[in-house]
Design a protein around this nucleic acid. Structure first.
Lengths: 155, 155
DNA sequence: GCTGAAACTCATACGGC
DNA sequence: GCCGTATGAGTTTCAGC
């Protein structure tokens, strides 16, 4: 991995705020001509620093207003429990985000559904049926205060 | 808010996977000519369903490998504690994500830093100094299993 | 509300510094 | 490694259906 200079960091900051910024926009923003900007952006993509681009969707506007944080503990006895659980989690669209935590086979998930009824159906109908899932604890958020994608670069 | 048809949903799905997909790509994907696709995308933006576009950055590649989930409880006595806390949280680049939870003025945050040392410095040096912050509980994740931005549309 | 074509903007590659 | 130009994509608008 090559070292990033201030131009690269400025480009990342701009692209994090607007992933559809044109090369010309970026060039003007950082004070270079379009050619080196295009080359640098391609470098950042090839180096895996920019992993992709996405449209940001308003979950509430799409009807998925109801998020729940779910804490899950897996049974130590069940073989391949982690692998199977993670595969299932990746498959379910309801699970937006999932982290493996330190400790006792704990996972933290954010599940987004249309409402409490849909959430309950997901939980009892499909989620608890994943082999190895033992205890489940749900926490309900009131409101999202800050929704970052990744750490915003300093300065 | 107008009802979304299957073309709109297909466009959202494509743009969620690739926020830089061209109008021509999208047109081919959904089976329309470029003109109506451009119009529909603009409509989705204007309606606030697409709230923006972002480059997805690899936090680890940028050196922010160390994430911590922080649970915070605010003092009921302190006036404006919530507003001040939220303003601070929005200001700190270390705080990537923050949710107000149901219950007793609880917040759940994800904090991303370069390592344990930086995290400790952030916690003791700046975070605990926010007025009203009483109890803090940290949980350390091992690995991110799924990193969604928003609920992926069904089907 | 879609199609297709024309005008314009943007991206990419290359020669020169 | 950057700049400037030229060529080819991509975008946008408009007339016609």
């Amino acid at each position: 991995m090559t070292k990033l200079d201030t131009y690269d960091l400025a480009l990342l900051r701009m692209l994090q705020k607007n992933g559809r910024a044109t090369i010309n926009d970026l060039a003007e923003g950082v004070g270079l001509s379009p050619s080196p900007v295009a080359r640098r952006v391609r470098m950042l993509e090839d180096a895996g620093i920019i992993t992709g681009y996405a449209a940001l969707l308003d979950e509430a506007a799409l009807g998925f207003e109801f998020s729940v944080f779910v804490s899950v503990k897996l049974d130590r006895q069940v073989d391949d429990a982690l692998a199977k659980f993670e595969a299932a989690v990746r498959r379910y669209p309801e699970v937006v985000d999932c982290w493996l935590m330190t400790g006792n086979r704990d996972y933290l998930l954010r599940v987004a559904t249309r409402g409490l009824a849909d959430f309950e159906q997901f939980l009892t109908g499909t989620f608890t049926k994943i082999p190895g899932v033992t205890s489940i604890e749900s926490s309900i958020p009131l409101r999202r205060v800050k929704s970052g994608l990744a750490r915003i670069l300093d300065q």
